[in-house]
Nucleic acid binder design. Structure first.
Lengths: 227, 227
DNA sequence: CGCCCCGTTGAGGGAGCTCAAAACGAGTGG
DNA sequence: CCACTCGTTTTGAGCTCCCTCAACGGGGCG
């Protein structure tokens, strides 16, 4: 079942979006795209939906969620402008995707893209590279979840967000403390305390709850790698 | 730098190995393979080595490891007969791979396989599928590491091992309790206590430390999904 | 202005970690 | 066949980090 969302069928917008993604390499793909706008908290798809589409984030932010039977939640990844989402080994999505804030994505028909990939080796290799990069991200996240302390997790998260979306040392965190906690295997309270701790240590500055500045990148990197 | 290991350049052995892997679909790949034998604890490659090869496990078992600066260890995945290992987004491996027990693998030149994949769409799609499946495994593991209790982690692990390598309900665990702990984000002692707990509850039977039998698969599945 | 959601802070408790010792099992040599 | 060794696993006891529960504060929006 496809989730309801504002859809505008139109040519690919000439957004200032980067990198990392097939649309940029291969003009042919652009024509397959449909622009979709999501309001805050609106689902892009749900766990178990048929995986008929790939998506690329244009603006805003998405999170992927998995729930345990008793309600415990895990946030797999945050997707920022330029990020590609929708690869799956099965015919269904195995997690939900929701908008953290108002978000615009481009939607591609999976069947069309997969068919095109057989004719355009460059597209095929790009999709393969995206899968390998996602795997690398997941492998780092597993080390974090398996072995790092709360403060180290937050340090890693801040550095990651800085690399992906920061303007210099200023970082915008569109998601809530609860989202961050569910992503890092912590509670909201522990996330809050770890931010406070890093602030006390002079490593970061809290401009507001969703805007932070890195003060000591080396200290942050040391914490993130645990030595 | 390539790790030293017993290498036998020869045609692909007619092993009774499954499934899941390119070698089986595409005869051409078999000729590219070189058989490599590893003794217990011997590294197949180290973190940071140039990623010049893909591998397929024939017999035995591998583990992938990442270390934090202060020595904390994380075991990413165990690889059993039929499993494919070596996909990476970069030119280097980002984790080490070591033999849990005496292990035989087939080694493929990454360059040759990648080149062949451009000519043989089926091979390209197979590699892509392997990457997507690995991603799916990683996503499940992140939920486990982020949100499950010790007992739930062990239940999930036992079920996973039963599906992958079990003969009926009898399971062989070639790795140590420490390996299991480092894979599940626990200590060896907690792993041992969780096994004892499941035994006390009549869910599993411990034939020996490395051989267990599932007594109540439904109870195990309930625990693994937490509800 | 007042409500509500989100974030912060505090106090107490618990799941899993640490440290330590004993039990076990596989391999080795007499 | 037994004695000994060495690494692994089990079990116990105490501690710690993070979770839980609760109260308070602040910013955005009706």
């Amino acid at each position: 079942m496809q989730t309801i969302a504002a859809v505008r069928t139109s040519p690919f917008p000439s957004s200032g979006v980067d990198s990392r993604l097939p649309g940029d390499d291969l003009g042919t793909l652009d024509r397959l795209g449909t622009v979709v706008t999501l309001r805050r908290e609106q689902p892009l798809f749900r766990e178990g939906d048929r995986a008929d589409f790939y998506f690329k984030v244009i603006s805003g932010a998405l999170r992927t969620c998995k729930l345990l039977a008793d309600g415990r939640r895990h946030v797999g990844e945050f997707f920022l402008p330029g990020d590609f989402i929708g690869l799956t080994a099965t015919s269904d999505y195995i997690f939900a995707a929701e908008a953290v804030s108002e978000t615009v994505v481009v939607r591609y028909s999976r069947r069309s893209v997969d068919a095109l990939a057989l004719q355009e080796p460059r597209l095929g290799r790009r999709l393969f590279a995206i899968a390998c990069e996602s795997l690398s991200v997941a492998q780092h996240q597993m080390v974090l979840l398996g072995r790092k302390t709360a403060e180290e997790r937050i340090a890693s998260f801040v550095l990651d967000m800085a690399e992906r979306g920061g303007d210099g040392d200023g970082i915008t965190l569109p998601m809530t403390r609860t989202d961050i906690g569910d992503h890092l295997g912590l509670t909201m309270e522990t996330v809050s305390r770890a931010f406070a701790q890093l602030k006390r240590e002079g490593v970061i500055e809290l401009k507001s709850t969703h805007n932070i500045v890195i003060r000591d990148r080396d200290a942050l990197a040391d914490l993130a790698d645990a030595g």
